[in-house]
Write a protein that binds this DNA or RNA. Structure first.
Lengths: 208, 208
DNA sequence: CCATAATATGAATATGAATTCACATTCATA
DNA sequence: TATGAATGTGAATTCATATTCATATTATGG
């Protein structure tokens, strides 16, 4: 957690620091990202940086949390809260779509988590069980879908949940990495998503 | 490329160095991996290391090439050479299966490429178009499948090829990361694979 | 307007490796 | 077995950065 001094800062200055950090971590992996660069781009001195943050890890943790939070804001909270009211595939589509919008609007930053997590020693410490949370969430959706008879009762919930999690990351990857897919044109992104959903739906929906 | 001195080394010693490097790069991302540790575990001096390799990058490139080569050896060369003789899904299964066997037998090392490539500055330099090659390969298989009428003519070859590539990485990921799936029991790995293939087949095969 | 606290600063210091280098050892050949 | 070229060595050097700290500046409230 940043020190209180950081939170005492005027909004604008705080944002400038966050932006500079995002910029740097998007460009470099943790061990190459320079505090000096971040400080310079934020228009503060190195000393000030240490006034605000415990150390580099403190900053990175904070940045990752911000991103996670931001991503959450993209998903339709009503749907999540009332998940029983919606169909499984409907929910899946909505979640995937929100992921897409997030990726589109934060293209520069979605690589950060991956870059950071490439360091096994940071993995456990910083992100921990974030992925696990996603898997659990999908499992819950699958259980609901099964109870409603929407899904093939033979599916292995655990396995499919893992797939869905993995697929959603893949999707982001495809949209993010491929220059072929123009992020400014959400249409094409949606096409990709529909393809993905088609795979899944065909794979696990209940057959008559 | 390692210097000639490296290739003059007795097989055994060379292997020891490679093993030590694999070990270290599997544990640490590029910038944290220590030459000193590699040298020590290989039973050579740091000085010798620089007798054999230009620098750290030189070593990493070499190691990644070795892994890529090794992975290739796992796929059925006959099937690849005579790809027209086999069905699309048959080929997909075989390729995925070989990836699985590779993962099983090299569990420790399959994270290396990912870890290395998390560093954007190494990405282009070291791996470059390795992924592109995979995409192209799948595209070719898809074209053949289309020509034979095995596949839904409406699929977007480019997009599906990207998916297949991404999925194959996901599969490895799932098998690799999840402790739930016991790698010593290839059976369960095959089950995962069949699930995956089911998704794909249902998603893109020709319907009557 | 002063005193004290809070904040800002960047040069100085600490740290952690990569890389070099001067010297030691081994080995192939005469 | 003598010789020097090839190889081996790890302490010393260099370099890049995180972190600290003494000092300056600014804010606060009495």
């Amino acid at each position: 957690m940043p020190k209180t001094t950081f939170f005492n800062l005027p909004e604008e200055k705080r944002q400038k620091i966050i932006d500079a950090a995002l910029e740097e971590f998007a460009r470099q992996p943790f061990h190459k990202a320079k505090i000096a660069t971040i400080a310079e781009n934020a228009g503060i001195s190195i000393g000030s940086f240490y006034q605000y943050f415990e150390d580099k890890k403190d900053l990175v943790k904070y940045i990752l949390n911000l991103l996670a939070q931001k991503k959450l804001e993209y998903i339709n909270q009503d749907m999540v809260a009332n998940r029983e009211k919606y169909g499984f595939f409907e929910l899946c589509r909505a979640i995937t779509y929100s992921g897409l919008r997030f990726a589109k609007e934060n293209a520069k930053y979605i690589g950060i988590a991956n870059t950071i997590l490439a360091d096994p020693s940071l993995q456990s410490e910083i992100l921990g069980d974030n992925e696990q949370v996603t898997i659990e969430f999908y499992k819950e959706l699958l259980e609901i879908g099964l109870a409603k008879g929407e899904l093939d009762p033979n599916i292995d919930v655990d396995l499919v949940a893992r797939f869905l999690t993995s697929l959603s990351f893949s999707l982001i990857d495809i949209v993010y990495k491929d220059r072929k897919i123009d992020l400014n044109d959400l249409e094409s992104g949606i096409k990709v998503m529909d393809k993905l959903m088609g795979f899944i739906e065909n794979g696990i929906k209940k057959r008559d």
